[in-house]
Amino acid sequence: MSQMPSQEQIWRALQEVMDPEIPVLSLVDLGIIREVKVEGQEVTVVMTPTFSGCPALEAMRQEVEEKLQELGVPRPRVEVVLDPPWSSDQISPEGRRKLEAFGLAPPPVHRGDPEIMLNPVVPCPYCGSRRTRVTNTFGSTLCRAIYYCDACQQAFEQFKPL
């Protein structure tokens, strides 16, 4: 019987598993890891998808399994749940800072109703100006919208509120 890693070790390791579409953001920053269960030799990570059509989910699931194997878990389990639905509010404060540094405007916090946040002022992640406008509510991935900054004349993307 091998020594199973502790919950804390697993959470720390999951900080190193990045979202394949936003490589600066870990799955923990993204808020999609719901629970880590260690019961004897059984280790289960409970995850939830961001957008339900997100093709990165399978890749992330696989990377979580590989990471757990590196930690010495022989048969890691990844469980995917839908309830409660993921919201962009669950991105951590650290995650928001990383998004901004990456040039992706973080989603506004909406506390439950993303509909009211569809027309917010989105500050430019490059120059900080509020003179920006949305050019497309859909972007290069399901979770992004496209904006343009009239101050620094730079197109940028926003992580959409959900």
Binding site: F51, S52, G53, P55, N136, F138, G139
Partner: peptide, 20 residues
């Protein structure tokens, strides 16, 4: 181009919902 991106997103969402 903007609509090309938007409709591809709509399609991907609908197929994601179908999978659920």
């Amino acid at each position: 181009l903007e609509e090309d991106i938007a409709i591809a997103n709509l399609a991907q969402d609908e197929i994601g919902h179908a999978l659920i």
